[in-house]
């Protein structure tokens, strides 16, 4: 049985020009996202992990066309968002939403919750004006907040509650795909658990598809079906979750897993320490981007960029040595 892909990303590229000098001449590019391809079947969760600066958030935003990609295709239910006129795209935005990391910065402090959630409902005419309040109350109930909160302002809420409001806002237009951009990273652990459970409940109830962007591998393991690891603008490994943790292939994935503090002092993980720091994404090396830090690097890695190889059931890895 093959599930239909709700989202297909093909060769997505986002380069930012680096301007220098008197006439702002562009002589180099920051290659934030460089040839990224993946797909998500309907109703599944893809976890996109990587460290800061690897381009995971840029990928999420370019998919939603919140920033314009330099190249590539993004197919939502078969339609390329990058070949769409303004009106058609606006209509399509109803199907895809985003929840941001910082629940403090992503809600306008001068608007009431009614206006924050209601704006999208009004714009997309999700329900008639008469039903709007009842609909919003139901949404708040859905995310675990009381209906009397509609007249409150963001500052009256705690971090966890704000994140719930962000989710209610995303849900308001009945989307099919939600990009979760570090959506639980700013929360305390006990609150993080509440919000993660809420994500799972909503996903099951509405058959939602998530692109779950985070740096936290433990969270990704909990919530995703599949996992994609990004390094310096490229996906280095993508696999089903259990398979990924049982049998990680890329040296970077292995190092990443080994670096997570264990959940008990009696479990000691064999640690793979990486040399040096993240290489700059401005004019990255021509070979494998992980070359300079890789404990297994060989001569070929410096010269040739490794292609994606299938090493198991839908388990892709970009490494010469596998």
């Amino acid at each position: 049985m093959h599930k239909e892909n709700i989202l297909e990303v093909k060769n997505l590229v986002k380069w930012f020009p680096v301007k220098k000098g008197l006439f702002s001449k562009t002589n180099s590019y920051l290659k934030a996202v460089d040839d990224v391809s993946f797909s998500i079947p309907r109703g599944e969760v893809l976890g996109l992990v990587g460290e800061s600066g690897c381009g995971k958030s840029t990928t999420g935003r370019a998919i939603l066309r919140l920033i314009e990609a330099t190249q590539g295709e993004v197919l939502l239910e078969g339609q390329d968002l990058y070949r769409m006129g303004k009106t058609a795209l606006k209509e399509k935005r109803k199907d895809m939403q985003i929840v941001f990391q910082d629940p403090y910065a992503s809600l306008n402090p001068r608007l009431t919750i009614r206006s924050i959630i209601g704006e999208a409902i009004k714009l997309h005419q999700v329900v008639s004006e008469k039903e709007r309040d009842a609909f919003m109350e139901e949404l708040l109930y859905e995310v675990g907040l009381g209906k009397h909160f509609l007249n409150h302002f963001p500052h009256q809420f705690s971090g966890g509650q704000r994140q719930r409001i962000g989710i209610a806002r995303a849900l308001a237009v009945r989307p099919k795909l939600i990009v979760m951009d570090e959506a639980v990273s700013a929360l305390d652990v006990s609150v993080q658990a509440q919000v993660l459970n809420l994500f799972q409940d909503l996903q099951q109830k509405y058959g939602l598809t998530y692109l779950f962007i985070t740096h936290n591998l433990s969270v990704v393991k909990h919530i995703s079906n599949r996992i994609a690891v990004m390094y310096l603008g490229q996906i280095v490994e993508i696999s089903e979750k259990e398979e990924f943790f049982r049998n990680p292939q890329h040296p970077y994935s292995r190092a990443l897993i080994s670096a997570i503090p264990s959940s008990s002092p009696e479990i000691k993980r064999e640690r793979i320490l990486l040399k040096g720091d993240l290489t700059s994404p401005v004019d990255p090396p021509q070979g494998c981007r992980f070359y300079s830090r890789c404990p297994e690097a060989q001569a070929i890695c410096k010269e040739v960029q490794p292609p994606h190889k299938e090493v198991g059931n839908q388990h892709l890895v970009a490494c010469h040595l596998r």
Partner: peptide, 19 residues
């Protein structure tokens, strides 16, 4: 309430409410 690499849980247990 913390997801870990060692264990797999269907749902996370939560501490209800806030500080």
């Amino acid at each position: 309430s913390i997801p870990t690499l060692e264990q797999t849980r269907e749902r996370l247990q939560v501490i209800r409410g806030v500080v």
